[in-house]
Design a protein around this nucleic acid. Structure first.
Length: 112
DNA sequence: TGGGTGACCATAG
DNA sequence: ACTATGGCCACCC
């Protein structure tokens, strides 16, 4: 009965595996959990990320464009960028520079 | 049961 | 750069 659980926790768990200074996108997480789930669900799950007891590095999850589309859901709109830059990820105009360099794909990193 | 929503993605123009 | 459209699927009325 407690296992209603939800892929919410699965999403959070994957996000927690993202190394510092690396980022991924919603679609990659969705694929890793199973293509059946759409990336929208990942974003939806992240909505509850801040409410988790265990912190979720949601700032390491951006959209496929490398844009900080979720920054508005943080405590402050600047927090997401600050956290990323603190980890060595440069952000200009809400977009990550060298996104492909920082990109961390759970399918590749975890399957290998 | 059904409609609306969403921190998305891909394609088209 | 922009809007529009269709798909995706869990969640909440």
């Amino acid at each position: 009965m407690e296992k209603h659980n939800d892929f919410f926790q699965l999403v959070f768990q994957v996000v927690r595996l993202i190394p510092k200074g690396r980022v991924t996108n919603y679609g990659a997480i969705a694929k890793y959990l199973g293509a059946a789930r759409s990336s929208r669900m990942v974003g939806w799950a992240m909505n509850a990320a801040h409410a988790q007891k265990k912190k979720v590095p949601a700032h390491r999850v951006v959209n496929r464009n490398g844009e900080l589309t979720g920054k508005h859901h943080f405590e402050t709109p600047f927090l997401m960028q600050e956290l990323l830059e603190k980890e060595g990820v440069k952000v200009v105009k809400d977009k990550i520079k060298n996104f492909d360099k920082h990109f961390w794909d759970p399918l590749k990193e975890l399957e290998m």
